[in-house]
Measured scan of single mutants.
Amino acid sequence: MTSCHIAEEHIQKVAIFGGTHGNELTGVFLVKHWLENGAEIQRTGLEVKPFITNPRAVKKCTRYIDCDLNRIFDLENLGKKMSEDLPYEVRRAQEINHLFGPKDSEDSYDIIFDLHNTTSNMGCTLILEDSRNNFLIQMFHYIKTSLAPLPCYVYLIEHPSLKYATTRSIAKYPVGIEVGPQPQGVLRADILDQMRKMIKHALDFIHHFNEGKEFPPCAIEVYKIIEKVDYPRDENGEIAAIIHPNLQDQDWKPLHPGDPMFLTLDGKTIPLGGDCTVYPVFVNEAAYYEKKEAFAKTTKLTLNAKSIRCCLH
């Protein structure tokens, strides 16, 4: 018999989150649709729960009410004593943790798909938090293969000092899905179709896995975050240069030392320094102006996964 890495157990509980950011409308629209008619997301033997994560922000069509829901799922915020004085999103995070967690427990949901849009030209993107997770690498390989020839990129946010504390991190297997470009507060049919297909293929993978299909060893190309880059700023902290036209919409493309990065209003080009080629992502993302992030630098690498098969009882 072929030796293989056996994944822990079959997958039982899956959640699909929309509206973690209330103005990213593809996930909101799909989740609302699936709450009314969820036939397309159901798979035999699998509990799939669509869920609106930040209903107040969705109602106002804004990213958040008090603070970013997708950055506060750490033990400090989840452990705060519940009171009306807490920011709305912290209270909501505790409610979500109660419903789908608790985080880092045996009772937490197996998989959470968190649906997002970006204003950046990132196409279909899967966000991975753990480079050693054979199950998710296999799932992402399946999704990428199923979507081809449509490109699907994998963004690895594993980093020693950049801690995200994402909404989906309460699950055993957290999956971020990011599709763009799409303006905030807008629905685009092409973007919706791409996100819908990503979810379909992900659920198909889980179904095949649960039925005992063995997935042979595989490898995927990923883009691992190195650092986030702020806009150049003046002495008052105001933005002093904008994304250069040569960099705009060039997510995932190589940016070499000396290539144009920013452009000042008086026409001066600010190039990339250093001696390493990087791959920019979230270029000129609207939501990241407040976070002082013009783009993120990534490096390209390959992740390998062992063969996996479900432990059938």
Score class of each variant (00 low, 15 high):
304 N>L: 09
156 L>N: 06
104 D>M: 12
140 F>A: 11
186 V>N: 06
67 C>K: 11
127 I>K: 09
216 P>V: 02
274 G>Q: 00
221 E>A: 01
225 I>S: 14
105 S>C: 12
214 E>G: 06
282 F>R: 15
290 E>H: 10
232 P>G: 05
306 K>Y: 08
124 C>Q: 02
63 R>Q: 11
135 F>T: 02
134 N>T: 12
129 E>N: 11
9 E>D: 14
288 Y>V: 11
148 A>W: 13
87 P>T: 09
152 C>M: 07
236 N>F: 10
197 K>S: 13
271 P>F: 09
218 C>G: 04
41 I>F: 01
80 K>W: 12
44 T>I: 08
146 S>Q: 15
75 L>V: 14
93 A>G: 12
260 P>W: 03
164 Y>M: 14
81 K>M: 14
164 Y>T: 15
297 K>M: 14
283 V>A: 06
176 G>K: 15
237 G>S: 06
187 L>I: 13
71 R>I: 09
276 C>I: 14
254 P>R: 01
193 D>E: 13
299 T>S: 10
75 L>F: 13
179 V>R: 04
91 R>Q: 13
260 P>A: 09
277 T>C: 08
93 A>M: 12
234 D>C: 07
40 E>Y: 02
308 I>V: 11
97 N>Q: 12
112 I>T: 01
71 R>S: 14
97 N>V: 10
184 Q>Y: 13
54 N>Q: 00
79 G>H: 15
43 R>L: 00
301 L>P: 03
126 L>M: 08
91 R>M: 14
299 T>N: 08
44 T>C: 10
131 S>P: 14
21 H>A: 13
255 L>P: 06
4 C>L: 14
258 G>N: 09
236 N>C: 09
53 T>N: 06
140 F>N: 06
288 Y>A: 15
227 E>F: 05
206 I>F: 06
181 P>D: 04
226 I>K: 08
20 T>P: 03
292 K>S: 10
31 V>P: 05
186 V>H: 05
297 K>R: 05
302 T>Y: 09
262 F>Y: 01
208 H>K: 14
239 I>N: 00
165 A>H: 15
40 E>V: 05
167 T>E: 06
211 E>K: 12
172 K>M: 02
204 D>Q: 01
13 K>D: 01
193 D>T: 10
293 E>S: 13
64 Y>E: 08
290 E>V: 09
16 I>M: 02
46 L>K: 04
312 L>G: 15
168 R>T: 11
14 V>K: 05
105 S>R: 11
216 P>F: 06
173 Y>W: 10
27 G>K: 04
192 L>I: 14
19 G>C: 02
125 T>W: 02
280 P>D: 05
92 R>K: 11
67 C>T: 14
115 L>Y: 04
24 E>N: 07
126 L>R: 04
252 W>P: 02
224 K>H: 07
309 R>Y: 06
56 R>E: 14
115 L>S: 04
142 Y>S: 02
73 F>P: 11
179 V>Q: 05
28 V>S: 15
163 K>E: 14
195 M>L: 01
187 L>Y: 00
250 Q>R: 12
114 D>S: 08
43 R>F: 01
227 E>Q: 07
109 Y>D: 00
138 Q>I: 02
120 S>V: 06
294 A>I: 05
177 I>G: 02
17 F>H: 06
28 V>E: 06
114 D>C: 01
72 I>E: 12
227 E>S: 07
183 P>Q: 06
140 F>Y: 12
134 N>S: 13
155 Y>G: 07
177 I>H: 05
131 S>D: 09
262 F>N: 02
141 H>R: 06
311 C>P: 14
168 R>M: 09
93 A>V: 10
17 F>P: 02
194 Q>H: 09
158 E>A: 05
264 T>A: 08
182 Q>E: 05
115 L>C: 08
246 N>G: 09
4 C>F: 11
114 D>P: 02
152 C>T: 08
105 S>F: 11
203 L>W: 05
115 L>T: 02
124 C>H: 04
127 I>G: 03
47 E>N: 10
62 T>H: 12
102 P>M: 10
105 S>H: 13
40 E>A: 02
191 I>Y: 03
282 F>Y: 14
307 S>A: 15
147 L>Y: 02
192 L>G: 02
127 I>H: 07
237 G>V: 03
179 V>P: 04
38 G>N: 14
284 N>F: 03
231 Y>E: 03
237 G>N: 09
172 K>P: 08
306 K>Q: 13
142 Y>T: 03
299 T>I: 15
57 A>D: 02
118 T>M: 04
57 A>Q: 05
223 Y>K: 06
117 N>L: 04
67 C>E: 12
220 I>G: 05
149 P>M: 03
47 E>P: 05
217 P>H: 04
47 E>K: 12
44 T>E: 13
222 V>K: 02
185 G>C: 06
215 F>T: 04
71 R>M: 12
199 I>W: 03
26 T>D: 04
216 P>K: 08
283 V>Q: 05
184 Q>T: 12
231 Y>T: 01
33 H>R: 12
249 D>C: 02
267 G>N: 09
210 N>A: 05
73 F>V: 12
40 E>N: 01
216 P>M: 06
303 L>R: 03
106 E>H: 13
228 K>S: 10
108 S>A: 14
8 E>D: 12
130 D>K: 01
221 E>D: 14
278 V>N: 03
198 M>S: 08
176 G>I: 14
295 F>M: 07
192 L>N: 02
190 D>K: 02
96 I>D: 07
208 H>C: 12
239 I>V: 11
59 K>A: 13
99 L>M: 13
6 I>N: 14
109 Y>A: 06
181 P>Q: 00
153 Y>A: 08
206 I>A: 06
153 Y>G: 07
177 I>A: 04
187 L>V: 14
14 V>F: 02
81 K>C: 13
237 G>A: 03
150 L>W: 10
76 E>K: 12
311 C>S: 15
273 G>T: 13
97 N>Y: 10
23 N>P: 06
256 H>M: 09
235 E>G: 10
91 R>Y: 11
36 E>Q: 14
31 V>T: 14
53 T>F: 03
138 Q>F: 06
170 I>A: 08
197 K>D: 09
47 E>D: 12
287 A>V: 10
241 A>H: 05
287 A>R: 15
85 D>H: 13
261 M>L: 09
74 D>W: 09
213 K>I: 14
